[in-house]
Lab assay of single mutants.
Amino acid sequence: DDWEIHFNNITIRLHGVSEEQIEELKELIKNGAHEEELRKWAEEVNR
C-alpha cells in the first residue's frame, strides 16, 4: 500500500509498505524517534 504520514512538519511517503510496518513506524514516532532513526527505518523498509 501507499502511505503518506505527516508529523513535525515532515512528510514521509511510503510505497508498498505493510500495515505491520506502519505500526512499527507509529511506535518509533510515539517513542520520540529522531529524524535519523526514521530515515534508517525507511531505508530498511525500502530494501
Rank of each mutant, 00 (worst) to 15 (best):
K30C: 09
K26Y: 15
I22M: 09
N9A: 07
A42E: 12
R39P: 04
D1H: 14
H6A: 07
F7P: 01
Q21L: 13
E43P: 00
L14A: 04
R39K: 13
E27S: 14
V45Q: 10
E23R: 14
N46G: 07
I5F: 14
L38M: 03
E35P: 11
E37F: 10
K40W: 05
V45H: 13
R13E: 06
L38Y: 02
R47L: 15
N8F: 02
R47I: 15
D1P: 13
G32V: 01
K30H: 08
T11G: 05
N31T: 07
S18R: 07
A42T: 05
E24C: 04
S18M: 05
N9R: 05
N9V: 06
N31E: 05
N46I: 15
R39W: 11
E24H: 12
I10W: 00
N8I: 07
R13K: 10
V45K: 07
H34R: 14
E24L: 11
N31H: 08
N8H: 10
E43V: 01
R13L: 05
K40C: 05
E20N: 11
N9T: 09
I22K: 10
H15R: 04
K26H: 08
T11C: 05
R39H: 14
A33G: 04
L25G: 01
E23K: 10
E43L: 01
I12M: 02
W3T: 05
L14M: 07
W3P: 04
S18Q: 05
H15W: 06
N8K: 13
E43K: 01
R13M: 07
L38H: 00
N46S: 13
A33F: 05
I29G: 00
I22R: 06
L28T: 00
I12H: 04
W41N: 03
W3S: 03
N9W: 07
N46W: 06
E19W: 12
R13I: 13
D1T: 15
G32M: 05
L25M: 05
K26M: 15
E35K: 04
I10R: 04
G32P: 01
E23F: 10
L14K: 02
N31M: 10
S18A: 06
L38Q: 00
D1Q: 15
Q21H: 11
E44W: 00
Q21E: 07
E23L: 14
K30G: 04
D2M: 15
G16I: 12
E20M: 09
I12C: 05
H34Y: 08
R13W: 02
A33E: 03
E35L: 13
L25V: 05
L14R: 02
L38T: 00
E24M: 08
Q21F: 08
G16L: 10
V45E: 03
E23T: 13
V45L: 11
E20G: 12
E44K: 11
E36M: 05
V17F: 12
N8G: 15
N9C: 14
E36V: 06
E35M: 07
H6T: 12
W3H: 07
E44G: 08
L14N: 01
F7R: 01
F7A: 03
I29W: 03
T11A: 01
T11F: 10
G32T: 01
V17A: 14
Q21I: 14
H6K: 11
I29N: 00
H34F: 08
D1S: 14
E35I: 14
K30Y: 05
I29M: 07
W41Y: 04
I5G: 03
E37Q: 11
G16E: 09
V17E: 01
E27T: 14
N8P: 08
I5M: 10
K30N: 06
E44T: 07
K30M: 12
R47K: 15
N31G: 09
I10M: 07
L38P: 00
E44L: 07
E23D: 14
E37W: 05
N9Q: 07
E23Y: 08
S18D: 05
H6L: 10
N31P: 00
I22W: 08
E19K: 13
I12N: 04
H34L: 15
S18F: 04
N46H: 10
E4L: 11
I12A: 06
Q21C: 08
K30R: 14
K30V: 06
R47P: 13
K40L: 08
E4C: 08
E36A: 11
R39I: 15
H15V: 12
S18N: 10
N8V: 08
E27R: 14
E37H: 06
I29K: 00
L28S: 01
V17I: 12
A33M: 14
V45I: 12
I29T: 01
K40E: 09
I12D: 02
E44P: 00
I5R: 04
E35W: 13
R13H: 15
R47C: 12
I5K: 03
S18C: 07
E23Q: 13
H15C: 10
L14P: 02
E35D: 07
I12E: 04
W3E: 02
H15Y: 05
K26F: 15
V17Y: 06
I5P: 02
W3Y: 13
F7N: 01
F7L: 12
E36I: 03
K40Y: 05
E4F: 09
L28M: 13
E4W: 07
V17H: 03
E35H: 06
V45A: 14
A42V: 14
L28E: 00
H34E: 13
K26W: 14
A42M: 12
E20I: 10
I12W: 00
K40D: 13
D2P: 12
D1N: 13
E20A: 14
N31K: 11
R47W: 07
F7D: 01
K30I: 09
I10A: 06
H6I: 14
W41M: 09
V17L: 12
L25Y: 06
E19A: 13
A33P: 02
N9P: 02
E23N: 14
W3L: 10
E35A: 10
Q21T: 11
T11K: 09
L28N: 00
E35F: 09
I22A: 07
R13Y: 06
E24V: 11
E27Y: 05
A33D: 01
N8Y: 01
R47F: 10
K26D: 03
E35R: 04
G16H: 15
E24Q: 12
E27K: 12
F7Y: 09
E37V: 13
D1V: 15
R47N: 14
A42P: 03
K30F: 06
W41V: 08
N8A: 11
R13Q: 08
D1G: 14
R47A: 15
E24P: 01
T11S: 04
N8S: 09
L38D: 00
H15P: 06
W41T: 04
R39A: 11
I12L: 04
H34G: 15
E27H: 10
L14Q: 01
L28A: 01
I22Q: 04
E27I: 09
E4K: 05
